Simulated scan of single mutants.
Amino acid sequence: MRNTIAVMNTKGGVGKSTIVAALAETLSSEHGKNVLVIDSDAQASVSSMLMTVTDLFGLQRDGLTIVDYLVATVLRENQIEWADFVVRNVSDVDDARSVYLIPSDMQLTLFEREVSKESLHASLRNTIADVLRKVRPVFDIILIDCPPGLSVLTESWLREADFHLSPTKADYVSVCGLEVFRRFKSLNPEMGFAENLGVLVNMRDLASPVDTEYVNWLRSNPENRCFESSIPRVNALQDAARFQPQQRSYGAKYPGQVGQAIKTLSREVLVRLEAANRPLAAPPPPPPSPEPVRSEATSEAEAHPAG
């Protein structure tokens, strides 16, 4: 099943990591899905949203992050188990017990520098492809939190993942970020690229005519495949990004309007994944060839052949 989704926009500040965490917790809590979050952003934002800073620091200190896995497999060519880097029981939502995480570390930028210096791009991409191949059958959905910009690691995720989902704000610069991303996607098509799952408008001011104008502009382009749901700009979503040591209910973390918007988004994501994985209907068999029309002269000749 195709179920790996790279969450990406070349423009930063669009609330990408917040959406990844909220979507993972909603898919787990509301739909019972086993969700793996791969934090591929050196800022480790989504990692800090899903666990305490103390626990995250301990994993970074002990060499149990995506950076350590990639250093071992790409730079040192060691064979190690990806599952050893997966953290279970993350999230502070009491009924989101099926969210898993491969955390990140700020050392990720140094790793990418070494990949470029040693010309190990092919090895990196092969490693990413291998990881995704192994996690697909284990989890229902895999969300990859990519940093803004187009690094060698992000390109590997985008070329090997099944889909990409692009959060954006309803402003000119963020929309331009989508256009840069679209142009990048058109380069080297022979190398493959993730399929567009859709564009999500995040942090929308529902009372702003300007925001509405940008949303209509985005939706006017069918290539964007905009999600019907827009995530409103509310303080509750910013508060939800702060991990709490005491567990809370889904409704307490995502109350009211923002909770409804995230739930609608999660349903849309599932519907689109199901449609994308639905096998194409087999074409109907061709009609039987008609019998040749025989004239009386032909029949007579066949009945009394010459000779």
Score class of each variant (00 low, 15 high):
P285C: 02
L27N: 01
D62A: 14
V87Q: 13
S266H: 08
I80M: 07
E291A: 12
R219M: 14
D55C: 03
A276G: 05
Q257L: 12
S48H: 08
P148Q: 04
W157K: 00
Y172M: 15
A96I: 04
A281P: 13
T212K: 13
L206K: 11
A306S: 09
E81Y: 09
N196P: 07
Q238V: 13
A96S: 11
N224H: 11
Q79K: 15
K16S: 08
R267T: 14
R204Q: 11
R267V: 12
R294D: 01
R267M: 15
I262F: 09
P209G: 05
G177I: 03
S116I: 14
P167Y: 00
N188T: 14
Q246T: 12
F111L: 12
P255Y: 01
A301M: 10
V87Y: 00
G177F: 06
R182C: 04
P292W: 07
F163A: 05
K253D: 00
G307C: 00
G177H: 05
L36P: 02
W217M: 11
M106G: 12
N235K: 13
A281C: 06
R219S: 11
G32D: 07
Q107P: 03
P290I: 04
C146L: 04
A240H: 02
F227S: 02
Q79A: 14
G256F: 05
F193S: 11
Q43D: 12
G198S: 05
S119N: 12
D171Q: 09
L120E: 07
V173K: 07
E302G: 01
V293N: 07
R113D: 13
S17V: 05
V152E: 12
G259W: 02
R88N: 10
A72G: 04
E118S: 09
A194Y: 02
A301C: 00
G149P: 08
P232S: 05
R76Q: 15
L143M: 03
S116P: 02
F184A: 15
P290R: 02
S174M: 03
A252W: 01
T168V: 14
E190F: 09
M106F: 13
F243P: 03
R272I: 07
T109R: 11
S91Q: 01
A240F: 07
A96G: 08
E223M: 08
I5W: 00
E274Q: 13
V180F: 13
L218Q: 06
V199L: 08
T73V: 12
W82G: 03
S28P: 00
N34A: 11
V201P: 04
V35L: 06
D105A: 08
P245N: 09
E291F: 10
E30M: 10
I262A: 05
